[in-house]
Nucleic acid binder design. Structure first.
Length: 457
DNA sequence: AACTGTTTATA
DNA sequence: ATAAACAGT
């Protein structure tokens, strides 16, 4: 078939809500044709993991931001309702587009939908192609010496560091060529994407979703926090971490942009920069593992954990969700999560360990709650994190590594500032509720549960 | 990316 | 008396 020059290309935005360093958009623009930016709301195509409440809050705002950036460049975002196949098909028919470009996603349900859709579009004679816009290293490309995927982080990251990061398409387009006629677009509120208002009332004080918010956050981190990162990153009371996770999840900034910004730093900050990039490395590792273990969101990677004697206790689960465990650091974390849609990583490890080991509740209950409440909810990261804490993952903490919430608080929140901010009403220290389980007892019970799991093998 | 109980080293 | 080192979980 022949490609009419000037026929529009659809750029299908998903989790790449940015205009700079966007390979799909760059490809469309390089074709010299007009560009129709598209977003399709199709949560039912994401299997067991459609966007949770906090994610929908973020997404709604990020799309407003993306549309504003597009309008500033003579373009606009066309919004449609799924199913994606029908929505894209109609857009192609209405606009005469001859190409559809997108940046790849790696969630199992989405990846298989995209593969089928890609074949379908090509069968129609269209140019249809996905690009890598969301990870530094394609999950397929990194292999150990036997040609197998990695299962241990340090070896994985060492292999990554010997490779060059792919070239950037970092130039932000100044204008996007508009099609002769704009297809019809839904207004964002018509998608009914927003969660109930009381669910996310505190989020707006904390976050600025969108591409410009992402770059502001990166700049602030590099200027104000990076030099202290190695020592402050574990202190939840401080702003010692980048807080880029939701921006990275929605692709408002790419890991490549972060990578290059760190490598441009003066020499005295490079060591801290590499400590930070190592965390980007964990994100890469999470995508590597998800790509190679499609069942991992709902199944322990270590098969012996299938026999683990999890307890079903709705009351204890609710107390954990609401931050009423009687352990101030755990409660502070769970309340920070509900109020802001985010929790400091050190505290995530502590609250997750508490659910899985002190309460003996299945890590998937915790993963589900995080999925609904985190603005950075990301299937790859969430799965790796929970399997790591539970001890059932590929390169996980051994199961017997049980956090002591009081010791963790003393070590990482020594002034009690974080706990006071989130868990304690002023002057109520004396009235703090008692622990719902005693640490020593819970620890011994968790170790006994592990022993019984091994015995059953 | 731990914790605990015990032993050993140092002041 | 206290800290560092170690083993087992």
């Amino acid at each position: 078939m022949t490609i009419r020059s000037g026929a529009p290309a659809l750029v299908w935005f998903r989790q790449d809500l940015r205009l700079s360093d966007n390979p799909a958009l760059a490809e469309a623009m390089q074709r010299g044709s007009s560009v129709i930016p598209v977003f399709i709301w199709a949560p039912e195509e994401e299997g067991a993991w459609p966007p949770g409440a906090a994610s929908r809050w973020w997404l709604g705002r990020s799309l407003v931001g993306l549309n504003a950036e597009l309008e500033r460049r003579g373009s606009r975002l066309i919004v449609r309702r799924g199913p994606s196949k029908e929505a894209l098909g109609r857009l192609v028919a209405e606009s005469g587009a001859t190409a559809v470009y997108w940046n790849r996603r790696y969630e199992p349900a989405v990846a298989s939908r995209d593969a089928a859709l890609s074949a379908h579009l090509r069968g129609q004679g269209l140019l249809a192609e996905g690009f890598n816009g969301s990870v530094l290293f394609d999950p397929q490309m990194i292999r150990n010496q036997n040609g197998q995927p990695f299962r241990v982080f340090t070896a994985f990251w060492r292999a990554c560091l010997t490779r060059l990061v792919g070239p950037s398409s970092n130039n932000t387009p100044k204008r996007l060529a508009a099609p002769v006629n704009w297809p019809h677009s839904l207004a964002l509120p018509e998608l009914s994407m927003n969660p109930p208002a009381d669910w996310t009332s505190g989020h707006g004080e904390t976050w600025q979703p969108g591409e410009s918010g992402a770059h502001r956050q990166l700049k602030r981190f590099l200027e104000e926090a990076l030099s202290g990162y190695p020592s402050n990153r574990d202190r939840p009371a401080l702003v010692g971490t980048s807080r880029l996770s939701p921006h990275l999840h929605f692709g408002e900034i790419s890991p490549g942009q972060v990578w290059r910004a760190v490598l441009r730093l003066p020499h005295d900050r490079l060591a801290a920069g590499h400590a930070f990039l190592r965390q980007i490395g964990w994100r890469e590792f999470a995508y590597h593992l998800l790509h190679h273990h499609l069942e991992s969101p709902h199944k322990p990677l270590r098969p012996e954990f299938a026999a683990f004697p999890w307890r079903h206790d709705a009351g204890l689960l609710k107390a954990w969700r609401q931050g009423r465990t009687g352990y101030p650091l755990v409660d502070a974390g769970m309340r920070e999560l509900r109020h802001t849609g985010w929790m400091h990583n050190r505290v995530r490890m502590v609250v997750a360990s508490f659910l899985v080991k002190h309460l003996l509740i299945d890590w998937q209950e915790g993963a589900a709650w995080f999925w609904d409440t985190l603005v950075d909810a990301d299937l790859a990261n969430n799965t790796l994190g929970w399997q790591w804490v539970a001890g059932c993952g590929a390169d996980a903490a051994p199961y017997f590594r049980i956090f002591n919430p009081a010791l963790q608080a003393a070590r990482f929140d020594p002034g009690g500032e974080y706990v006071r901010r989130w868990a304690l009403e002023p002057g109520s220290e004396a009235a703090y509720p008692p622990p719902i389980v005693a640490h020593d007892e819970a620890r011994h019970r968790a170790l006994a549960a592990l022993a019984s799991m091994k015995k059953d093998l």
